[in-house]
Amino acid sequence: MGRSRFHGEIFGIGTDSGVRIVIGHWTNSPLGEFTDVMVQFTDGHRLLLAPNENVREFVTATYTFDEVYLTPVEFSQRGNSVELAADDLRVSVTTGQPTALGRLLHLVPNAVSTAPWFCRISDPIARVVLRGVRTRGSAGNGRREYYGARHQHRITAAEASWRGEDLGHLTPVTPPVTFGFGSTPAAPSVTSITTTVDSR
């Protein structure tokens, strides 16, 4: 069995239009530094925006999509402002103070909060408290996946457009996204995370 670990941040936002967007910005991973975007439209259609073939291959072997675009994904962050451009998607995000969960996670050593054994323990709690959030589960092709959160901040504002059409104001991520076994939190947030993937 092989083990891959991805260190980075996951941004989850909903919009008035019903489109939900999940941005993964990975600063340290077996695939190098990269950003990918998962979009679920109002009709349930699931789209992956991947920056290269290696990312596309790994992500689609782990999650489920109806369509995949290979496209440059431009991500920039200055202070609490994030800008993203990928194909016809444009997203601007403003982050705020730590969430209550983020303040709690700050007290837990990273070596503990990101360990698969801790993700097994925290999974039943996450299911109840965060509704739709999972910290471990079965991924595609027999893989096991563990989400070890290190910190979390609120997203206080967001603007997004698809093919030039404004997607509306920031809303909770509801209904939950269905790319994999779990969703991002319903409350818009950015979570610092280590994702561990065990492959056969």
Rank of each mutant, 00 (worst) to 15 (best):
Leu89Val: 13
Leu89Pro: 07
Arg90Cys: 08
Arg90Lys: 12
Arg90Trp: 15
Val91Gly: 06
Val91His: 15
Ser92Lys: 13
Ser92Pro: 03
Val93Cys: 11
Thr95Val: 05
Thr95Phe: 09
Gln97Arg: 14
Thr99Trp: 14
Ala100Asp: 08
Ala100Asn: 12
Ala100Gln: 15
Ala100Arg: 07
Leu101Val: 11
Leu101His: 14
Gly102Thr: 06
Gly102Ala: 02
Arg103Val: 08
Arg103Tyr: 10
Leu104Ala: 13
Leu105Pro: 04
Leu105Asn: 00
Leu105Val: 04
His106Ala: 14
Val108Ala: 07
Val108Cys: 03
Val108Pro: 13
Asn110Phe: 09
Val112Gln: 04
Val112Ala: 08
Thr114Gln: 02
Ala115Ser: 14
Ala115His: 15
Trp117Thr: 05
Trp117Arg: 05
Trp117Pro: 01
Trp117Gln: 05
Trp117Lys: 08
Phe118Asn: 09
Phe118Leu: 12
Arg120Pro: 12
Arg120His: 12
Ser122Met: 05
Ser122Ala: 11
Asp123Ile: 05
Ile125Gln: 03
Ile125His: 04
Ala126Trp: 00
Arg127Ile: 05
Arg127Pro: 00
Arg127Cys: 00
Val129Asn: 01
Val129Gly: 03
Leu130Met: 13
Arg131Ile: 01
Arg131Glu: 10
Gly132Tyr: 01
Val133His: 01
Val133Tyr: 03
Val133Ala: 03
Arg134Asp: 02
Arg136Trp: 11
Arg136Pro: 09
Ala139Pro: 01
Gly140Glu: 10
Asn141Ala: 14
Gly142Val: 02
Arg143Phe: 09
Arg143Val: 09
Glu145His: 14
Tyr146His: 02
Tyr147Ser: 00
Tyr147Met: 08
Tyr147Ala: 11
Gly148Ile: 04
Gly148Asn: 05
Ala149Tyr: 09
Ala149Arg: 09
Arg150Phe: 04
Arg150Cys: 06
Gln152Arg: 11
His153Phe: 12
Arg154Ala: 15
Arg154Pro: 08
Arg154Asn: 14
Ile155Arg: 01
Thr156His: 09
Ala158Ile: 06
Ala158Lys: 11
Glu159Cys: 10
Ser161Trp: 00
Trp162Val: 04
Trp162Phe: 12
Arg163Ala: 15
Gly164Leu: 02
Gly164Asp: 12
Glu165Thr: 15
Gly168Lys: 00
His169Arg: 11
His169Lys: 14
Thr171Phe: 07
Pro172Tyr: 06
Pro172Cys: 03
Thr174Lys: 11
Thr174Leu: 08
Thr174Tyr: 02
Thr174Gly: 13
